[in-house]
């Protein structure tokens, strides 16, 4: 009987400890979520404050009692935001698509093919990752200018159609596919290219989707390069375009309208993430090979 009581005691203590630990974890997580979500709240809040009330608040308020949609209208009328949107879309889709076409065969070659100097070349590639982006921007600017590609989509897209890091990421992923699958595919009569297309890409789909999404976000958010290479409004991306939103009378930045524009351009990314959330998390398919 005494034993029974002891066990109950231990059980209760364990349950209590678990509750405490859970409480601590959830408090920390809640705090973290608040930190992460607050800027978004601030963005949406600012976008619904009127220009006048925004500027009259000496200390910004955490809420507004008279939300307005006027800023959204302003954002689209003050500057050709629709045009910028389209530019960004073209830039993002083209860059991402071309990059995938470039990096997948590159990763395949490094992971699967045998050729002279493969390791040396790959090491050189990796060492490129050490060079900071800002340094490359200058030489890229000179190159693109000399090629007379300023204010063109080619000039915008060209420098970012490859990525050493993504090649590396994908190569590691490809290399995990067992050799037997390659041999089996060979015996089944596929060429190297077909093997890449029909076996490697489907198996590594989660990684490829992740890379795609990261690249889309990178393109969508890119600021420095488009700013440097374009001074013609027809080629502005949203990130640069919204800088042009100003209050007509004073020529000052119309911050609430800018925030409205930011909300509009953030929505596609958030939707994209929500749709592909599961795909991003999905583990690499396994199970075809045992042992």
């Amino acid at each position: 009987m005494t034993n029974q009581k002891d066990f109950e005691k231990i059980e209760r203590a364990a349950a209590r400890r678990k509750t405490v630990i859970n409480a601590v974890i959830y408090i920390l997580l809640g705090f973290w979520a608040l930190m992460v979500l607050f800027p978004f709240y601030w963005m949406v809040l600012t976008s619904v404050k009127s220009y006048a009330s925004y500027n009259s608040e000496y200390i910004p308020k955490f809420f507004t009692l008279s939300p307005t949609m006027q800023n959204y209208v302003d954002a689209f009328t003050a500057v050709p935001l629709g045009q910028y949107f389209l530019n960004t879309l073209v830039f993002t889709v083209a860059t991402t698509a071309i990059m995938l076409i470039v990096i997948i065969p590159a990763a395949f070659a490094f992971a699967r093919l045998q050729f002279r100097g493969k390791n040396v070349l790959f090491t050189l590639f990796l060492s490129l990752m050490m060079i900071p982006n800002e340094l490359v921007v200058i030489t890229n600017f000179v190159t693109i200018t000399n090629l007379d590609l300023r204010n063109s989509f080619t000039g915008l897209i060209l420098p970012s159609i490859t990525s050493v890091f993504y090649i590396y990421l994908l190569k590691e992923n490809f290399a995990q596919i067992p050799d037997e699958l390659y041999y089996a595919a060979k015996v089944d009569g596929t060429s190297d290219f077909k093997y890449m297309l029909k076996v490697m890409i489907p198996i590594c789909r989660p990684t490829i989707i992740t890379v795609t999404i990261l690249k889309v976000i990178e393109c969508w958010n890119s600021y420095v390069w488009p700013r440097l290479i374009t001074d013609n409004e027809a080629y502005y991306l949203v990130s640069n375009g919204i800088q042009e939103i100003r209050e007509n009378g004073f020529g000052r930045e119309n911050i609430p309208a800018m925030m409205a524009a930011v909300v509009v351009i953030s929505v596609p990314l958030i939707v994209l993430f929500l749709i592909f959330r599961k795909k991003i998390m999905e583990g690499v398919a396994r199970g075809g090979t045992k042992g």
Binding site: E180, Y183, K186, P202, G288
Partner: peptide, 21 residues
């Protein structure tokens, strides 16, 4: 002749089935 043109069937020790199919 490369393997794809030999007309052979090969069964591997770990089967090597395509996991996504």
């Amino acid at each position: 002749l490369p393997p794809e043109h030999r007309g052979i069937g090969l069964v591997f020790q770990n089967y090597a089935l395509y996991p996504h199919l």
